[in-house]
Write a protein that binds this DNA or RNA. Structure first.
Lengths: 155, 155
DNA sequence: CAGTATCCCAAGCGATACTG
DNA sequence: CAGTATCGCTTGGGATACTG
C-alpha cells in the first residue's frame, strides 16, 4: 500500500468524517472491546461475561448500558425453565456487522501477540478449510494489499 | 455465522490465549487508535499528528513511547533541508500488519457511524475499482460470512 | 444469579511552562 | 518546531455492600 509521508497523499480530512476515527471513539476502550468479544463468541449472560474477563460488576453494568444506547448491543429476555425472566445480551445488527473487523483483529493478534500457534480462527463450515481476511473486488476475488490505495469514493 | 448461545459453542478459552483479547489490550484505547490511524494515513510528524486529532502533547508523547515499546511504531530520523535532525513516526511491520483491521473498521464506521456517503475507501490502484474486506479461502475466493464458523485451528 | 448503589482512591487527562 | 516536565483536578475503576 502506498501511503508513505511523501508526495501524493490523502487530503487531510477531519476525524469526524472518517469512519475509522469514529470507530475509535466507540471502540477505543479496553472493556468495550472485551465485552463485545464475549458477545461475539456467544457469551450472553452477565455473570458469564464478567467471570471470563474479570471486569468489575459496576463497570460491566455501565458499559452494557452504553453499548445498548449506542445500538451495538440488544438486551433480550429469556426464561430459565421454571425461573423468572432474565436478560441476555446479544450483538445488534450494528454489532454483528463488526464481525469482519473482529476476525481481522483476531488474525492480527494471533500473528503478532501470541507466542504459539493460534488456537482459533474462521473455517468454512462445510469444508472445514481455514479462511483469512482479505480485500476483494466486486466479484469476490482477492486483491493484494500492495496493489491498493485509499481514495475518495464519495461520488 | 453460527455462534449463538446455544448447543454447540466454542469452548471457553481464556483471554490470554485469544488474539482478539490480546489485541484489545493493546488497541483498546481511544488515543492509541487515533494515533495509529494518523500513521496509517501517512501523517508522521509530532505536530501534525497532534493538530489533526487534538491530543495533548504530553499524552501524545507517552502514547508514542508506549507504541514504540510495543513495537507497533518506529521512530525514524529525517533532516529538514539545512535544519537539524528531527523524528518521524511510522508504523512498524507489526503496525502495518494492522492494515486489514483498520480497513475493516473503516468500512464499519462508514456504514454505521457516518450519516452520509463514505468519503474514503480502498480502491485497486490500477483499475480504480472499489474494494471491500471479506473472508477468502486459500485460493483467494470469497466465502460468505454466513457459511463460516470459528474453530480450533491449532493443530 | 443479576444486577444497582455507594464510595474511596489512584490513574491519567489536559493546561501550562519549560528545554533543545 | 518538537518535544519533556510539572501539576491540579476530574474521571472512572474497582471493592464492598445492598436489592430483586
Amino acid at each position: 500500500m502506498s501511503n508513505s509521508a511523501d508526495s501524493e497523499r490523502l487530503p487531510r480530512f477531519p476525524p469526524d468524517r472518517c469512519g475509522l476515527a469514529l470507530a475509535a471513539g466507540v471502540l477505543g476502550d479496553k472493556w468495550v472491546l472485551m465485552i463485545l468479544r464475549q458477545l461475539f463468541y456467544g457469551v450472553a449472560r452477565f455473570e458469564d461475561i464478567r467471570a471470563d474477563i474479570g471486569i468489575p460488576k459496576s463497570v460491566l453494568s455501565t458499559r452494557l448500558a452504553d453499548l445498548v444506547a449506542a445500538d451495538l448491543v440488544v438486551k433480550r429476555p429469556y426464561k430459565p425453565d421454571g425461573g423468572r425472566t432474565r436478560w441476555e445480551y446479544h450483538l445488534s445488527k450494528k454489532g454483528v456487522d463488526l464481525a469482519m473487523s473482529f476476525l481481522a483483529l483476531l488474525e492480527w493478534g494471533n500473528r503478532n501477540l501470541l507466542g504459539f500457534s493460534p488456537p482459533i480462527g474462521p473455517v468454512e463450515t462445510a469444508s472445514r478449510r481455514r479462511l483469512r481476511v482479505a480485500l476483494v473486488d466486486e466479484d469476490g476475488k482477492e486483491v493484494a494489499l500492495q496493489s491498493i490505495r485509499l481514495a475518495d469514493v464519495s461520488k
